[in-house]
Design a protein around this nucleic acid. Structure first.
Length: 897
DNA sequence: TATCCGACACGGA
DNA sequence: TCCGTGTCGGATA
């Protein structure tokens, strides 16, 4: 049952004029068998003897109040203490007030009877859910957002012709009123009470009411019309742009009015976290993102990963250093009031809110420290909302950001007063909240939004959207093209690269720094050489978080692995902080691969660095599955049509190569297809291919619908008449948890490689030895592409750009012996490569690599190492350094020719 | 024509 | 529902 349903059902029960059935109705809301409640109603299993009491074994001891509720509660407690087995809950109520106790956690509840719906979770142990767990899963923000989604739906349905802007503004204002009446900005419950008193049950005059109310909130009391009725005049002056625009007339029903009242009565707005609420509310209003409610909001821990290294750690260090020194403290106090902050993809403003709160806390801490050293001055605010800037394309999100900033400000004002009693910052009238601009961030000049001179301390940060090159919309591609004019290969960049580039230009030569949460793919594989060289000519990475899996508290988490990068103008003196799985390291330089090292990048080469057999990309069917047969389909096909056996070849992709999965593929020539024109199975398969290709939006795929019997792309090797010899097969994607990437050395006969493996055809064993070596793995690991954190092998970067050692015939023969040994052991062991190579890092079922196989690999590794240099490599870093210097040497040689 | 990648996709505990 | 690990075909050069 949804949260709102519990609340609604209990609301109905407490609203009944007659409470005689209360406890039975209440139990009925929870997972207590209906039969049990029915029996209880009839008194059959009620173990209590006294009147007005209900004792349900193990679950509840209930008593109606007899006048003095506290005394009744104490009596009940005494009675229960005598019992052998305690009921989980004690509950007494006179239907005005309610006292309850959870005998397991010893938590108590002391509330007005009417507020019971808000506290339904107190009794969730009846459903087997502990309150602590529930609170963790469903904080006040989530519950508020769910309730708001309901209200939004009803209001939208009642107002099909209303503008988005009008609706959104209405919602934001209602949210503000609800928050204000729970947090002493307004008199307690003022808004909800006025709604109840002044509007008709059917909602007919609600619009009029809300129109007058919103109108009044924008005026100071002195400026309001003299005839303003007192029920309106009780509301204070709010301002802050929130109520400036005229309320757009809307239609309300009994239902929407009720939902608003319930939102006021059932939710604990004082417990709202503006950072999370914003994301939730925003998701509610944009229908397209409703399905992944709050999927992309950045969690507070992740925001801290950005802002701490970017500026917060530094400010805190300066604070520590300034303690005991009035001048320094005062300087820091003034400084934090001048720093400017911008999130150019602010969404509902989480980064800005967290930053604002942290700065306000620092302000408080400085004041306390000043007080401690005996300096007491009148409170003058330092940090203000107008230091905060944001750009966001969604107009509602902009409104939510402004609202959330106000909520954050109020919360910090309360905190200030609590910690320093003579310091007061009034929340009303609302402060001007920076510039939160509704715009496409990539098409506006950031300088015109947040103007800074060369000496202004400024920080730009956020979590902009990621879209891979093949998934971008036409408009997104256009923006990236435009921004990266003159950069070759820019069509391959992720959408987020636009933010990196604009951020780079914004801070260039200024006293400003940037840091973003980004998809890790801009630090791996092909994008590195396209994006980073021109940026790192002028800037340096001063801190970074290496890849980690994206996570927040939303229901369906986005599937992506992210990294964090901080950039600033070059400054040789600073130490860089590189954060990885094991905390952080101070290093001299962070490379664009987010490892310690130089800014050298590896390009995606179309030809090998040195003469060697070429690596070919496998065959790509683009067939909608029509040409492919799994084991079962294959057996069925050849038993029904034995003549098909010669056309069905072993189909090898990464899955087949590594896990030993078996699939087959129809491999037909034009001649073959004519011969099979009467075979119904073949014809039905070709129909699948034809229709799948016709459905494609890609013109070239559509064209291939006329040749459904052929793969859309065939590797050059397969265009030869016959297949023979051996091929080194490399899986395009494979797990990073294995000690080696398992590669194959397969006979070519009968084998069709697909587009998820690469092949070096007619290859000698020494080539297999090189590719299977640790030297090569280190290269692939550091500069190759990744799918999340898997290896994503590519011929251009991993093979063509890999510097091969110079090999004598004798050395080749030696390597082949080691390779042969590996192949022999594999054959002896049998089973799949995945079994033999194990998954040593997996948490469960950790399966080690076969020891004999590992020994053979280590012997081969040593032999390959020695082909590069005679002295040992102490570690993989030194292997990589050598490879990178060889690459630069050889690549430089090529481009100078 | 030949890839390199995916705010992923999917099967198994 | 989380965890482990690789499909499939688009868009680019």
């Amino acid at each position: 049952m949804a949260i709102t349903e519990y609340e609604d059902q209990i609301q109905e029960i407490v609203s009944k004029p007659d409470h005689s059935e209360f406890i039975y109705d209440f139990l009925g809301v929870y997972d207590i068998p209906r039969a049990t409640v029915t029996k209880l109603r009839k008194g059959m299993n009620n173990l209590a003897k006294e009147a007005g009491a209900v004792y349900l074994k193990n679950k509840l001891y209930f008593r109606e109040g007899t006048g003095d509720l506290m005394q009744d509660y104490a009596d009940l407690q005494e009675r229960v203490d005598e019992l052998g087995s305690k009921p989980r809950y004690l509950l007494v109520t006179d239907y005005q007030h309610l006292l309850a106790k959870d005998t397991k956690t010893n938590e108590t509840l002391d509330i007005e009877f009417a507020k019971l719906p808000q506290y339904f979770d107190f009794f969730l142990a009846w459903n087997g859910i502990e309150k602590a767990d529930f609170e963790k899963e469903n904080p006040a923000d989530v519950r508020a957002a769910e309730r708001f989604a309901k209200l939004y739906d009803v209001v939208v349905k009642d107002n099909p012709d209303a503008t988005r802007k009008g609706l959104n503004l209405f919602l934001i204002r209602i949210l503000f009123c609800l928050f204000a009446e729970d947090t002493n900005i307004f008199e307690h419950d003022l808004f909800t009470n006025r709604v109840k008193q002044m509007t008709a049950d059917d909602g007919s005059n609600f619009d009029q009411f809300i129109g007058s109310l919103f109108g009044v909130l924008d005026f100071e009391k002195a400026q309001r019309p003299v005839d303003t009725p007192s029920w309106l005049n009780d509301f204070p002056y709010v301002d802050g742009d929130l109520f400036k625009d005229q309320h757009e007339s809307l239609h309300f029903s009994a239902k929407s009015r009720k939902l608003i009242i319930e939102a006021g009565e059932l939710l604990k707005w004082d417990q709202i976290n503006p950072d999370i609420l914003g994301s939730m509310i925003q998701a509610v209003a944009s229908e397209d993102s409703r399905s992944h409610l709050g999927m992309h909001y950045t969690s507070v821990p992740n925001i801290m990963k950005v802002i701490k290294p970017l500026f917060l750690d530094g400010l805190r260090e300066d604070f520590e250093a300034a303690k005991d020194n009035e001048d320094k403290l005062q300087q820091l106090y003034d400084r934090i009031g001048r720093i400017k902050f911008m999130d150019p993809a602010c969404g509902s403003g989480n980064f800005l809110i967290i930053t604002y709160k942290e700065l306000r806390q620092l302000e408080i801490d400085i004041l306390i420290e000043l007080n401690n050293i005996g300096v007491s001055t009148m409170y003058v605010p330092s940090v203000t909302l107008d230091q905060f800037y944001g750009i966001e394309i969604d107009d509602f999100a902009c409104d939510v950001t402004r609202l959330s900033l106000w909520i954050a400000e109020h919360q910090m004002n309360v905190k200030l007063h609590r910690q320093i009693s003579d310091a007061v910052r009034p929340t009303l009238p609302l402060q001007h909240a920076g510039a939160i601009l509704q715009a496409d961030s990539l098409s506006v000049d950031w300088n015109s939004i947040m103007q800074v001179d060369l000496n202004t301390e400024a920080y730009v940060f956020g979590n902009p959207p990621y879209v891979g090159h093949s998934k971008q919309t036409t408009n997104q591609k256009k923006m990236i093209r435009k921004i990266f004019t003159g950069i070759s290969g820019s069509g391959y960049l992720d959408y987020i690269a636009g933010w990196l580039e604009l951020g780079f230009r914004y801070i260039l030569g200024k006293r400003a720094k940037i840091a973003f949460v980004t998809t890790n793919s801009i630090f791996e594989g092909e994008q590195v050489a396209i994006l980073w060289p021109h940026i790192l000519e002028k800037l340096q990475i001063h801190f970074a978080y290496q890849s980690f899996k994206w996570k927040n508290n939303a229901k369906g988490n986005a599937g992506v692995t992210v990294a964090i990068v901080g950039l600033q103008n070059k400054n040789d003196k600073i130490q860089c902080h590189l954060y990885g799985d094991q905390g952080f390291k101070c290093v001299n330089h962070i490379s664009p691969y987010l490892i310690e090292g130089s800014d050298d990048v590896v390009e995606d080469l179309s030809l090998p660095l040195s003469p060697r057999p070429e690596m070919q990309f496998g065959n790509k069917p683009t067939d909608g599955g029509g040409l492919i047969f799994n084991d079962e389909e294959y057996n069925e096909a050849i038993s029904k049509y034995p003549e098909l056996k010669r056309y069905l070849r072993r189909y090898v992709g990464s899955d087949e190569l590594v896990k030993g999965k078996r699939r087959y593929v129809l491999w037909l020539s034009e001649h073959d297809v004519k011969a099979l024109s009467n075979n119904p199975l073949v014809q039905s398969r070709l129909d699948i291919v034809r229709s799948a290709r016709l459905k494609s939006g890609t013109p070239s795929t559509k064209q291939w619908a006329s040749k459904p019997y052929m793969f859309k792309q065939i590797a050059p090797y397969y265009k030869k008449q016959s297949l023979h010899g051996y091929v080194v097969v490399v899986p395009a994607v494979s797990s990073e948890n294995r000690e080696y990437i398992p590669m194959g050395y397969l006979s070519n006969e009968d084998t069709i490689l697909n587009n998820r493996v690469y092949g070096v055809f007619d290859a000698s064993l020494w080539l297999f030895a090189i590719l299977q070596s640790r030297m090569h793995l280190v290269w692939v690991d550091r500069v190759g592409g990744k799918l999340e954190t898997r290896y994503s092998y590519s011929s251009g970067i991993c093979y063509n750009a890999f510097p091969f050692p110079v090999l004598t015939e004798r050395k080749k023969a030696e390597l082949e012996e080691y390779a042969l040994r590996i192949l022999d052991i594999r054959e002896e062991l049998g089973g799949s490569l995945a079994d033999m190579y194990g998954t040593p890092c997996a948490k469960t079922n950790a399966k080690p690599m076969n020891l004999r196989l590992r020994d053979a690999h280590q012997a081969l590794d040593k032999a390959v190492d020695r082909a590069y240099r005679s002295n040992n490599f102490p570690d993989n870093n030194s292997r990589f350094e050598l490879l990178m210097s060889l690459y630069k040497e050889e690549q430089g040689g090529i481009s100078n020719e």
